[in-house]
């Protein structure tokens, strides 16, 4: 078992933004990321502040009721990575935060509740240049917390493109993504200081 104050899953724009703010606030933070991301934001500030980056894929979570206790990764086997709070910033389909099969869209790590069109024919716009509904799919939240089976997970905050309605593919949305990450970071920092 290895323990941090906060674990951020995903190292894209949202993940690194949240992690850097959290680490700089004096909390210990680890970013677990499966590979590089398209936005590939700088890791320097985070690492300089003492943050830890782990290149690994989170496979599942261990829950105590509605609290996420820790996560398992592909490479660390039975070693549980624990934290008080988690940020889910795994992005949409490309970065595999979401996955789709022929009939449904699901969140890949914890099986969180997702918002999407059930009718596949409504996933896409009429043409390439049109707006694409599938880019708006994402996880559902309540007061900033992720929902699983209709119930909020009390210490899991999604940020960035994993959220329904936020996408960086239909046009530059970096500002929205950064803000959603900073919001998550802010509430986590407050919570941890209490």
């Amino acid at each position: 078992m290895i323990k941090f104050d906060v674990i951020v899953i995903g190292g894209g724009l949202a993940g690194m933004t949240a992690a850097t703010a959290i680490q700089q606030a004096g909390l210990s933070c680890a970013v677990i990321r499966a590979g590089l991301s398209l936005s590939n934001p700088s890791r320097d500030d985070f690492v300089k502040a003492g943050g830890r980056i782990i290149f690994d894929k989170v496979c599942d979570g261990v829950f105590d009721g509605s609290v996420l206790r820790g996560v398992h990764t592909g490479k660390l086997g039975a070693t549980l990575l624990e934290a008080r709070v988690f940020v889910l910033a795994t992005g949409k389909f490309f970065s595999m935060g979401l996955a789709a099969d022929m009939d449904r869209v699901y969140e890949t790590v914890f099986g969180l509740d997702t918002e999407y069109e059930e009718d596949r024919s409504k996933w896409f716009g009429a043409s390439f240049s049109a707006e694409q509904p599938f880019l708006g799919f994402g996880v559902k939240t309540q007061d900033g917390l992720a929902l699983k089976g209709g119930e909020p997970v009390k210490n899991l905050r999604p940020a960035g493109e994993i959220l329904a309605g936020i996408s960086n593919a239909g046009g530059d949305a970096s500002e929205t993504i950064r803000n959603s990450a900073l919001d998550a970071a802010k509430s986590i920092i407050e919570l941890c200081r209490k």
Binding site: F93, F128, N168, A169
Partner: peptide, 12 residues
Amino acid sequence: REMEFMQRVYKT
């Protein structure tokens, strides 16, 4: 996934 990538490359 590729479709998201394609949208991203050409729209942003």
